[in-house]
Every structure is written in structure tokens, then in C-alpha cells.
Design a protein around this nucleic acid. Structure first.
Lengths: 338, 338
DNA sequence: CTGAAAGCGCTTACAG
DNA sequence: CTGAAAGCGCTTACAG
């Protein structure tokens, strides 16, 4: 099975290779009739342009990179699925790069990766989105990038993010509707847009419902299970303990469950609990966890699209999707126990 | 910052590009002195060969593919980490390909991917390892592949797998040591090497301890949470219910926890429970789950190495690692309650 | 052990 | 709207 080249297509179509190239790259200035004819032959022959040759000639790798440093593998696989989807669509390849944001060799390693893979652009996820040194480096090398859920938008680069504020407000409203007035809040790692937005949503929901904000019901966590346990212990030993707890992610919510079990506080009867992220965990815990599901895959798809649009020349117009987080009500929340 | 090419290195070294190429590809027939000199200049200039040019000229993509169809994202990210590790080491790129083994368009999609990415080889995971049509296709296109944990080794291709038999025996022994004699067993999906090996380990452990095998204590599951719930309900309503249950993975073990909670059977006091895989879940459940941790990352690293060794010509000798599964004892197992 | 020549399959920059 | 020529940065196949 001999490989089919652009040359073959050109010969069959009776045109020059350059014209075939124009069709493949969706360039303008080709007559509709020749475009059709060439496209038909491409389809017939099932011709696939050789990526290596394209890359070499055009000095573009046709590769984009995805950087992440995240303990949640469910989040990562969703992210990958979304970006991959866009990559397939536009004929790009994906280079995944798990890394650790806080190690000194992040930059050298990335420099290396960039030098060898020559990625045309990068998708960055928190906390790399806040790594100024990294961003400066990318800008110094003219590597386009897009940020997913960055803390602020000081950089003039494309950004995609989710509205955690209103998603959290929905959760808190759900609790308030059940009669809860003392609602504990476990913060995630500060300086992460998710943490800040979730906290804001909490405060706004309280305010809109004329529930007074009590600072002693807010405890710092760091998105880990263990921090959830500790935070919950603190909240549940409060002299006037909350009747409900909102944990800023599912792992911390799982920690709350553990702490509640240790203190023999049954969920949801004596304590309602909300998580965030809808990790697989949420379904598998007993009781199942009320949480918020994020459209991570679509978010990643959009991030990929935003990036690739910067890289390609001739493209169709863009149709952004509606990204909506969703409150998933399960067994861990219920009416307040007066 | 102008890009450094092989030509630059050759000029500085006073040799031909071909000789530089020899050094880069670790080819024999280069004098030690010139090799050293060239290597030094490569390091000084921080020269990285252009992958696209290498691929185009040598007609190899320097890419390997990883195919998986697995609900456990923790497993997937471990897999990726391992294969990536090998890829970095040998200068290969990784193309990840999540797919669904049971859809009819798996093959067309793969054919497409193979045509466009031109991967030099593939790493396959269950259940694709049993997809004869897929394997036949790969062989017909002369695409080298390696299988991770296949059911049988009928194909003459490299294989890596783990010893689930003895890992399971350890778990069951652990239960027996606690005094359990009636031990329920929840099977995973049949025709998966993991399921079969775990069941074998169970039977062997019973036999070695002179515990009689009771078929009514073996229930079919399919590795999902829900199947775990159903299986546990069946086991726990047995007229002489087991005092311990071994679930063939953590998800099903989580299902057992749910069923036990519904029936108000406290774990581990009235029921001991063992899972398998050590997913994050195991740590986050209440009580925490006794389970078996697999060295998935090393396994994947080795699979990658086995594959790349088929592809490259000039390599150092191989040093296989010791792959050992480990019983992790947590809170879900305890002495039998007489 | 080393090198000169040709070529991989595309795209660029230009010309018409 | 279309094409001829040159070149991207390597490796192959050969020669010495």
C-alpha cells in the first residue's frame, strides 16, 4: 500500500501541487470548480497530508501543549477529552504535560519540551495560570497561549472560565430553601479563581436572603481531603455549629463526611453537605453527595479552539457554546433539623 | 534567537552533517574522539534536532499511541505518566487516544488517526487487548504494538502484566488471618485477565487454608459501583451471610459499602471489606478501604520501553524493573465478629 | 570511520 | 486564479 502524496493528487487533478496545497489549507483564491474537483480526488484517494512535511515546510509543528498540575485525575481526563476534540477537528496533535508548578525545574523542562516538540501554542490550567515567570517566558518566546480559569485577567491573552459565583449561589440557595441559616463554608486554596468565586457566591447568596454573614463559620482548607476533615472538625465543634456545610470541592466534602462520621453526626439528618466539582467520588460515597457539575470538557474544547484560532490563518467563524454549571442534588442535603 | 541546525553543529565541529546525525542517533562507527567533540558542541549549543525533519527524512513519526477505554481516570493518568516517562527518555512523543472498544467506528477512527499521525507503534490496554479485529488490523499494517494485561498471550507480541493472583491471595489471607471463613467474592467483568486472576487467587487462598469453596458466595459484577451494590445485597441476604467480602475493584467495594449502610451492617465490625486497585476513592471513603495498590505507572513505563525498543535501532541494554502489587490495609477490615 | 549527493512531502515567496 | 522553483532540516543509500 503505497503512500499517497500531494503530488499524486495534483497529477490526477491535472493541477500543480501548490493548488492542492491551497485546497488542503482552505486558502482563498481557488476557483470553486477546481476546489471541488481536487477535494473529490482527495476524498477518493483518502489522501492525508504528511504532518511532518507540513511542519517542516511551514515551520509549525501542528502541535499544541496542555499543561496541568492537578491532583484530580477526573478533571484531567475531562480536560484532555475536550482539547483532543478540538485538536481532531483542526488537524492538530496534542502534547500533554503533567507538571508541578512549584518545582524550580518546571521552566527548564518546559523550555526543553518546547525546543524538542516545538509546540505552536499552549493551554494552561491553574495554578500555572498564575505563574508569572512561566507566562513571561512564553511571551518572550512568542508562544501563544490560552488560560483556563485564571485568577485575574491582567494578561492580554485569551481566557476561558466558568461562573463559579452563580453555581455556588445555587448551592447555597438550595440549602437556604431547606431552612438552613447557619451554613459553614470551607474555603479552597486562596489565589485560585475557583476559591475566590465560590466564596463570593456564598456571601452573595447569604446577603440576598438576608442571612447574616458569620466569619466564624468560614474555615480555610486547601482542596485536600485532610484539610476537609480538619475544617469540619473545627466547624462541628463550634459552640453554635452549622446545620449545613458547603465545601469548596468534593474531596474536602468527603473529609467532612469522615469528620461527621467520627462525631456521629448523621448526614443529611443532622447535617447537610454540599461539595463542588462532581468528581466520581460524589456518586460513590454513602450518602451520595450533592455537588456542582462543571462542563470541564466543553471549557477545554473552547480553550483549544481559542488557541488554534490564533494559529491558523483560514478558518470558519466561531460559534461559542453555552457553558453552564449545574447543581446536582443527591442524598447529602435535606431539610434543616430543628 | 536563530534556530540551531545540524548544519551549524557540523560546521563548528568541522565534520559533515551525516556524522552529527550519527552521534545523535547513537549509531556505531564513529570514533570516540569525534563523538565526544560533537556531543560537546551539541551540548554547548543546546542543539535539539528538528523532529519534523527527522520524521520526514526517516519516514518515522517518532510518535507512539496509547489506546484506552477505561472508566477510571486515576488508572488512565497513571498509565499516561508511565508511558510519557519512557517517551521523554527516548525522544518520542505520545498520542493519547481515548476510545470505546464496543463501537463500530473504533477501527475507522483508528485507521484515520494512524493515517494522519502515522504513529510508529501502539500501547494497548484492556479491553482493546482482546479486540481481535483491531489486532489483525494492526498486524496487517505492520504497526508494532504491546499489550498491557491481556487475557491470553496467543499473539506473539510483547506483553506486560501484573500478578493479580498473588496480590489477591494476600488480601484473602489477610481476611483469613482475621478469622474469616465465609468470604464473599464479587467477580469483575469476565474475560478480563484481572478478573480471572483475582478469582483464581481467591480460590487458591481458600484451598491453601483448607477453607471450603462455596459457590453461593461468588457473585458476578462488572466493575461498576452499581453492580457492587446489587452483588452485595445478594451476598448480605444470604441465609448464612459472609463475614467478609472481597470486591474485585474499589468501585464495587464502594457499592458494597452503600449496600451495607442501607442494611445497617457496620463495616468493619460486622463485615470486613476488601477492594482492589487503590483508587483515590479508597482513601476518601468512610471507613477507608483496605485494597491492593498496583504499580500501574511502572507497568506503563515498561510497556513503553518494550515498544520503543522495537522501533529504535541503537539502544542500551534493557533493565526491567521489579513490579510488585501491594496490599494496603486500612479501616474496612477487622477481626471476625463471632 | 567519514562524507557528498539526493530526496522525504510539503510550503514559501514570487511571478504571471 | 494558478504554477515553477527553491528550500525546510534531517536521513538514506552509497562510496571510499
Amino acid at each position: 500500500m503505497k503512500k499517497i502524496t500531494m503530488q499524486d493528487v495534483a497529477e490526477q487533478a491535472g493541477v500543480s501541487p501548490k493548488t492542492v496545497s491551497r485546497v488542503i489549507n482552505n486558502e482563498p483564491r481557488v476557483s470553486e470548480s477546481t476546489r471541488k474537483k481536487i477535494q473529490q480526488i482527495i476524498d477518493e484517494l483518502d489522501f492525508q497530508p504528511n504532518k511532518s512535511a507540513q511542519s517542516l515546510a511551514a515551520d509549525r509543528s501542528l502541535l499544541i501543549g496542555l499543561l496541568y498540575d492537578n491532583p484530580s485525575s477526573a478533571y484531567i481526563t475531562n480536560l484532555q477529552a475536550g482539547v483532543l476534540d478540538t485538536c481532531y477537528q483542526f488537524g492538530y496533535g496534542l502534547v500533554i504535560h503533567p507538571c508541578q508548578n512549584d518545582t524550580p525545574d518546571l521552566l527548564p523542562k518546559l523550555r526543553n519540551l518546547l525546543a524538542s516538540s516545538r509546540m505552536d501554542g499552549l493551554v494552561l490550567t491553574p495554578p500555572m495560570t498564575e505563574n508569572q515567570e512561566l507566562l513571561d517566558f512564553l511571551e518572550s518566546t512568542d508562544t501563544p497561549y490560552v488560560l483556563i480559569s485564571p485568577l485575574d485577567d491582567a494578561r492580554t491573552c485569551p481566557i476561558v472560565s466558568l461562573d463559579d459565583v452563580s453555581a455556588t449561589k445555587q448551592s447555597i440557595q438550595h440549602l437556604i430553601d431547606f431552612g438552613h441559616r447557619r451554613i459553614g463554608f470551607i474555603l479552597g486554596t486562596r489565589q485560585r479563581s475557583g476559591s475566590e468565586m465560590r466564596f463570593l457566591g456564598y456571601k452573595q447568596a447569604l446577603e440576598e436572603n438576608n442571612v447574616s454573614f458569620d466569619e466564624s463559620l468560614v474555615v480555610q482548607g486547601d482542596f485536600t481531603f485532610d484539610s476537609g476533615v480538619v475544617a469540619a472538625q473545627q466547624l462541628l465543634r463550634h459552640e453554635t455549629p452549622p446545620s449545613a456545610i458547603f465545601a469548596s470541592n468534593d474531596y474536602m466534602a468527603a473529609g467532612v463526611m469522615k469528620a461527621a462520621a467520627q462525631l456521629r453526626i448523621p448526614i443529611p439528618y443532622e447535617l447537610s453537605l454540599c461539595g463542588f466539582d462532581d468528581t466520581p467520588l460524589a456518586m460513590y460515597m454513602t450518602p451520595t453527595l450533592t455537588t456542582v457539575r462543571h462542563p470541564v470538557e466543553q471549557l477545554a474544547r473552547e480553550a483549544g479552539e481559542l488557541l488554534i484560532r490564533q494559529l491558523k490563518k483560514y478558518l470558519q467563524p466561531f460559534k461559542p457554546e453555552e457553558l453552564q454549571s449545574k447543581l446536582i442534588i443527591r442524598d447529602s442535603t435535606g431539610p434543616v433539623n430543628k
